[in-house]
Design a binder for these strands. Structure first.
Length: 572
RNA sequence: CGGGACGUAGCUCAGUCUGGUAGAGCACCGCCUUCGGGAGGCGGGGGUCGCAGGUUCAAAUCCUGUCGUCCCGACCA
């Protein structure tokens, strides 16, 4: 490719619309441009990176035996009503009516469509297992799109769906995808971690996320370096440690706490540690009120609570409902005398003489005790893990890290096949629902994550596997015929060798070219300058390293080709 | 949906408080010089100041509304 025949509109300054580094750099490098909130054009350079990631993904999916197809983005509402997600998915599903007034949506994911296809086309266990995948544009009307293409409303995703005859087969398919994902992300040059995750709106029995480790990541993950346990913060289990406090139960007492509501306020007003407080949160679990109890210094994990009840929706009750249930304004709720179901975190079990709200305005209770003053219906793990907690598997220290979710795999089981009546005939002649799995990779997000993970003050440092070009040939003096001639020669030799090379043939000053080459992150730079040329030499520089190397003109293109190979090998 | 910030040239921003001829740098076009880390000179083009009302002799500037953008949160995954 010739720079002058291509289109790479770079910016010198950070655009005001961007906050995080990958977003800034993608705009500056001329990779993407915003059309409206969460909607982007991939400019030629950005598209090249997208295609490189796609090709890695395609290559590895094919190797794993998955079969590529392409489903429509346009999806009729009927399918979503069959699966039950038309009502459940919420506003994130981009809905519309066609000219006849029929409900439809733009697909945020394709469980419904693939299940509809498979139930019509696959009828025998002999055709199983099978794994279909596609690389396609998805639509999710995110409530708050941000960070450029990291979280946007229209994005390219690889999604795959496996169908098996039984649990065992489904587990095998899941394991194959796990392995495949490790290979893919390795080839993308990521430092990443696979973590246990919640299944969210996709549903199913269990799932893992693949997180690229980066400080700016949206997700918090918890890892144990000793045993390898790793989980999304919201999923991370808390081990049931019962710290029984050995003290006599004191008489419960009501105290005045005028306008003292928050944990901090109560704690300092009564001069007790937040660990002596119990928070009572009134939640609506599928619209039924439940009181959730956690220690003052802990946070309720609503997802755990939702999963405990197997509920679809959960939310904190608003002021009116709290008033109705507790008889007091928000801030004074307590378990004593409550008529609704009470769920308490394990950490409450051993507490004695703690503080709670009194269900009266401006009153709290001190020296409250379980069993004597109120009953707990269920003890469960319903809080977020904290850095003070131990690894739920091995009991060692845990670390908190941040990550960018680039892949997510789900064991779906028969959730969709049952709901949509997708069955096959098994060996024994019986009709059975397919056991499914689904597997996603955010293609664009991979590009953003790569930048987030690897950049410096001059710009992007792409791993060679997803860089827009592998090599840039940079003639320094465009007014020197020899320099231009040699640069052209090298460019053509590399092209012939099958290298993805660009020559910066612009009549620009050297500084401009160097800065652009650094900004867009081309891994290998071959600089042709008249000084070195006099000695029959060229300069070779890796974007990832500071040092330059002079190489003999006669050794090109071999040295460069070897360098390319070397960089690829480092990603295996 | 709540809180905050912002909207002036392609980009980054000044000017708004205190109303009075719409600016700078970069980018773009032409000429000259320069040529290994975002060059310099001279000349030039480009903006209904987000939009709509209002106040005023006069509005980028003050008031009201509205749209859009970004950040934080809620929500969602």
């Amino acid at each position: 490719m010739r720079y002058t025949k291509y289109f790479i509109p770079t910016y010198k300054e950070d655009p005001s619309e961007a906050e995080v580094i990958s977003h800034k750099l993608m705009l500056r490098a001329g990779m993407i441009r915003k059309i409206t909130t969460g909607i982007y054009t991939y400019l030629p350079l950005g598209l090249r990176c997208i295609r490189k990631v796609e090709n890695i993904v395609r290559d590895e999916m094919n190797r794993a035996g998955a079969i590529e197809l392409l489903m429509p983005a346009f999806q009729p509402a009927e399918l979503w009503k069959e699966s039950g997600r038309w009502d459940y998915y919420g506003k994130e599903l981009l809905r519309f009516k066609d000219r006849y007034g029929r409900d439809a949506c733009l697909g945020p994911t394709h469980e419904e469509v693939i299940t509809a296809i498979v139930r019509n086309e696959i009828h025998s266990y002999k055709q199983l297992p099978v794994n279909f995948y596609q690389i396609q544009t998805k639509f999710r009307d995110e409530i708050r799109p941000r960070f450029g293409i990291m979280r946007c409303r229209e994005f390219i995703m690889k999604d795959a769906y496996s169908f098996d005859a039984d649990e065992e087969g489904a587990n095998k398919s899941y394991e194959i995808m796990k392995e495949t994902y490790h290979r893919i992300f390795k080839r993308c040059g990521f430092r990443f971690s696979m973590v246990e995750a919640d299944t969210g709106t996709i549903g199913g029995s269990y799932s893992h996320e693949f997180m690229v480790l980066a400080d700016t990541g949206e997700d918090q993950i918890v890892v144990c370096e000793k045993c390898g346990y790793a989980a999304n913060l919201e999923k991370a289990e808390v081990s049931e440690i019962a710290e029984f406090q050995d003290e006599p139960e004191l008489p419960m007492q009501e105290v005045d706490t005028p306008d003292i509501k928050s944990i901090e306020e109560v704690s300092s007003f009564l001069n007790v540690s937040p660990k002596k407080l119990v928070k009572t949160l009134i939640c609506l679990v599928d619209e039924k009120p439940v009181a959730a109890l956690v220690r003052g210094d802990h946070e309720l994990n609503e997802i755990k609570l939702r999963n405990l009840f197997g509920a679809e929706q959960i939310r904190l009750a608003d002021e009116e409902i709290v008033q109705e249930i507790t008889g007091a304004p928000v801030g004074f709720a307590g378990p004593v005398g409550l008529k609704i179901k009470i769920v308490a975190d394990h950490s409450i079990k051993g507490m004695k003489n703690f503080v709670t709200g009194a269900n009266k305005k401006d009153k709290h209770l001190i020296n409250v005790n379980i069993g004597r003053d109120f009953q707990v219906d269920t003890f469960a793990d319903i809080r977020f893990i904290t850095p003070q907690d131990r690894c739920p598997r091995c009991g060692n220290d845990i670390l908190f890290k941040r990550g960018i979710e680039v892949g997510h795999i789900f064991k779906l089981g028969t959730k969709y096949s049952k709901a949509m009546n997708a069955t096959f005939t098994d060996k024994d002649g019986k009709e059975k629902p397919f056991v499914m799995g689904c597997y996603g990779i955010g293609i664009g997000r991979c590009v953003a994550a790569a930048i987030e993970q690897s950049h410096d003050e001059n710009g992007i440092i792409f791993p060679i596997s997803i860089a827009p070009f592998e090599v840039i040939v940079l003639p320094v003096q465009m007014n020197d015929a020899d320099v231009v001639k040699e640069a052209e020669k090298i460019y053509h030799k590399l092209l012939e060798a099958g290298i993805d090379v660009i020559i910066d043939d612009r009549d620009e000053r050297a500084g401009v070219k160097f800065n652009d080459a650094d900004l867009i992150g081309i891994p290998i730079r071959v600089t042709v300058g008249k000084k070195a040329l006099k000695e029959q030499k060229l300069e070779l520089k890796l974007r990832s390293e500071k040092e330059k190397e002079l190489i003999p003109l006669s050794s090109v293109p071999e040295i460069v080709i070897n360098k390319v190979k070397e960089l690829y090998d480092s990603l295996k």
